[in-house]
């Protein structure tokens, strides 16, 4: 079983990203769970969203304490408290313009697999606004190999084509592709 934690702020789409990853798992015939952690709901508060993907039925119904993968989609949340509990062989993907070594020092982490990508700039470049969750999906794909770029693109089309139209869907996909190339270890 893989356990993924997505860290963002209210309104940044962390919950949607977690659900998209879960849906990709489901499409592949795996068992999935996806759930946000609800605190006092206020705009801008840190929000955690989780996904579990497994080959076997998932019976556990509690928070993820030791994630295999953490994705931080808001650069102001790169703080040690946020990455507590990550597995020693886990993977961390961070939206930042800093390098992975800088992030490792800042977080005082021994983790080998830290990836960085400037998802905010990519989001602004393609989507005209700061919704970094979409490009982050491309970065997560490259960093973890948990799902392919094609999987994300198909799911984005499935989820958004009707809602936002072909032009904006394409821009979303372009942002995902760029982030998947730009993400660095």
């Amino acid at each position: 079983m893989k356990e993924i934690k997505i860290i963002g702020r209210g309104g940044q789409g962390g919950k949607t990203a977690a659900e998209i990853i879960a849906k990709i798992g489901l499409n592949e015939g795996k068992f999935i769970q996806s759930f946000p952690e609800y605190g006092a709901e206020r705009q801008g508060a840190p929000v955690f969203a989780y996904t579990r993907i497994s080959d076997e039925e998932i019976t556990i119904h509690s928070d993820v304490k030791n994630p295999d993968i953490i994705a931080i989609i808001d650069p102001t949340l790169i703080i040690p408290k946020m990455v507590e509990g990550i597995k020693s062989d886990g993977i961390l993907i961070v939206n930042t313009n800093k390098t992975s070594d800088e992030v490792r020092d800042h977080l005082k982490l021994k983790l080998k697999d830290i990836y960085t990508v400037d998802a905010t700039s990519i989001s602004i470049k393609y989507l005209g606004k700061n919704i970094p969750n979409t490009p982050m999906l491309g970065a997560i794909s490259t960093a973890t190999g948990l799902f392919s770029l094609k999987d994300v693109e198909e799911e984005i089309k499935h989820k958004f084509l009707k809602k936002i139209g072909p032009e904006f869907t394409k821009k979303n996909i372009d942002s995902i592709r760029e982030a998947s190339k730009e993400v660095k270890q």
Binding site: E19, A22, L26, F31, I32, Q33, S34, F35, P36, Y38, I58, H61
Partner: peptide, 12 residues
């Protein structure tokens, strides 16, 4: 069913 735990948790 359990509030949030299952009511707001997505499963297949």
């Amino acid at each position: 069913q359990d509030g949030f735990i299952t009511s707001h948790g997505v499963e297949g």
